[in-house]
């Protein structure tokens, strides 16, 4: 590269400071020989440098940063979310713990719904009452014509399925000793009555009961005997009679006989009423 008047300035300082070497140094020397006025300029400034000046800056302390700064715990957004969730869970947990362990804070129910006795449930009365399957059969036949209001009552009756608990056996023994002779006497009287009506051809049959009916009653009562013996409630005895004897009048007559024999107390009106209401509403409805 040729050094000329245009570009000599960029090589001048290197030349003055002795940093120009080789080909460029020769070029520079040749250029200065050609231009002595420029060489005179360079001679005047070759060592014109500023001298060292010490100036103190008074505000250093304000620029310094303290070294022993307390460590700051960096709170990130994720940490904030985590702490919020944890605190919420803690509050909920404490609240539940407090409610659970403080009886005064228990919520009182507005209403207690007790489950209705189902068909499968077993109800043992004191003393236990055992109803014959025939009674249940009779109630089933009647069930079709029963209005919805009687549904609950029927469910209760269905629940009274035959059971043979220890208590029921004891009761059975107790009633057998008491009622068996009486019932045997009643059956014997009916049998005698039937025999009398059959043997005396002139004698008219019973105005209420035909001989065949009596036989049917006695036959039907025979398997019920153990059951009847253990039943003390008059209403249930009447119901047995009603289910066994389809005709209500005949059943009433049978009940009357039972009253005469001393098996049932003399409360016919109550008996009829109970029978109407409880067991055979269709009979009275037809009437």
């Amino acid at each position: 590269m040729e050094i000329n008047k245009i570009n000599y300035e960029q090589y001048a300082m290197d030349y003055l400071e002795g940093n120009l070497k080789g080909y460029l140094l020769q070029e520079m020397e040749a250029f200065l020989k050609k231009h002595p006025n420029i060489k005179a300029e360079l001679d005047g400034i070759e060592l014109c440098y500023l001298e060292e000046v010490n100036i103190h800056y008074a505000g250093k302390e304000s620029l310094l940063k303290p070294l022993a700064t307390p460590k700051r715990f960096l709170i990130t957004k994720q940490f904030q979310y985590f702490t919020a969730a944890a605190s919420l869970l803690l509050v909920l947990g404490l609240g539940l713990f407090y409610i659970k362990n403080n009886p005064s804070n228990h919520l009182k129910p507005l209403a207690v719904i007790e489950p209705l006795p189902t068909i499968d449930s077993e109800i043992v009365l004191d003393p236990p009452i055992v109803i014959s399957p025939k009674i249940i059969h009779a109630t089933k036949t009647v069930q079709k014509s029963i209005n919805p209001k009687e549904e609950t009552r029927l469910k209760m009756q269905k629940a009274l399925t035959p059971t043979e608990s220890v208590e029921s056996v004891k009761v059975k023994k107790h009633f057998n000793t008491k009622t068996e002779p009486i019932l045997n006497k009643a059956i014997a009287n009916h049998t005698l009555e039937i025999k009398q009506t059959n043997t005396s051809s002139n004698h008219k049959p019973h105005k209420h009961l035909k001989p065949q009916t009596h036989i049917r009653i006695i036959d039907s009562l025979a398997p019920l005997r153990p059951t009847v013996e253990m039943i003390e409630d008059e209403r249930l005895i009447s119901s047995i009679a009603m289910t066994t004897i389809p005709n209500f009048k005949k059943a009433s007559r049978f009940n009357k006989n039972l009253v005469k024999l001393g098996i049932l107390p003399e409360r016919k009106s109550t008996l009829k009423k109970n029978l109407r209401e409880a067991l055979v509403p269709e009979v009275f409805a037809s009437k």
């Binding site: 300035e9 960029q10 001048a12 300082m13 290197d14 300029e41 005047g44 400034i45």
Partner: peptide
């Protein structure tokens, strides 16, 4: 770098002229 050298040379030349 060339610009810097030129600026410095011109500055020193100017200072020298003032001193003279």
């Amino acid at each position: 770098e060339a610009q810097v050298k030129v600026y410095i040379f011109r500055a020193r030349k100017k200072m020298q002229q003032l001193l003279i």
